[in-house]
Write a protein that binds this DNA or RNA. Structure first.
Lengths: 140, 140
DNA sequence: CTACGACTTAAAGTACGCTTTAAGTCAAGC
DNA sequence: GCTTGACTTAAAGCGTACTTTAAGTCGTAG
């Protein structure tokens, strides 16, 4: 019998079988062909699962990932809708990249400063609050 | 009466009063002083809330944020533990930055490619799977 | 024939981060 | 005195993304 079982796919992709069934249920994966009631997968499923996992790790919701994936199906009409989503997501990703970089700064500066409370630490707050600082007694 | 009510803090910080009570409940904020049973806050709460929100937006869990914040309280002994957490989190943040950048690439390349299914798209997968590609017929 | 392991389904359970609800308290304005 | 609005509490509810459970099916090994 050709194709992989759900267990084999799960092992190769490094995710739980239950997650694969869940993805099928919510439409992230097309309903798998059944042989004697059991799911059988072609190798292409692995690429699809990699995209699903990347999207998840990048903070996409299931609904967003579904739109993203079905936007690629060759006969889907509302490609414009998909493009809008992608554009929107790009902006979100850029915002998120910024926030992560900020938190990175906060963490790094926390290694250097001697402020008793982080909310007084100018170094940590510098990129966050571009207003005039109260000029207290920071020990950064 | 000095200090702000929970409603005022919420309005200024741009978060719901219920969230502030929740933060106090789970230890992200110290128990606020009560006047006639109502919480009263000094201006410092706003800085603390900014940190809490930044941490949340950067993907920190409540537990991590609590460790992060209490690690700053001057008198807490296990600064080493806190340093370990921060180092660990920095690595996580760098990994996350990478994933976001990857998803950004996938999205951007999706605007250009003509692949019917994204898992066949070399452009999209290039940074993900550094192995030899099957050399199909990509239209990127 | 039977036992085993891997699979199937639907439904319930879980963790996180809050929000909502219910029932009550308090100070101020009429 | 009474109403109003903002507050208090504990407890329940919610959305997301799965996992776990229960009860059953299937193919192979012994």
């Amino acid at each position: 019998m050709s194709g992989m079982s759900i267990g084999e796919v799960a092992r190769r992709a490094g995710i739980a079988p239950s997650a694969i069934r869940y993805y099928e249920q919510v439409g992230l994966l097309p309903p798998a062909a059944r042989h004697n009631g059991r799911r059988r997968y072609a190798a292409a499923i692995l690429g699809r699962l990699r995209i699903v996992q990347l999207a998840r790790d990048a903070g996409f919701t299931i609904a967003e990932t579904r739109t993203f994936l079905t936007g690629f199906s060759a006969g889907t009409p509302p490609v414009a809708r998909w493009r809008a989503l992608a554009t929107h997501k790009l902006a979100q990703i850029d915002a998120q990249l910024l926030r992560f970089a900020q938190m990175r700064q906060v963490l790094e500066s926390s290694f250097r400063c001697r402020c008793p409370r982080i909310e007084d630490c100018e170094q940590a707050m510098a990129r966050q609050t571009p207003r005039t600082r109260p000029a207290g007694s920071p020990r950064c």
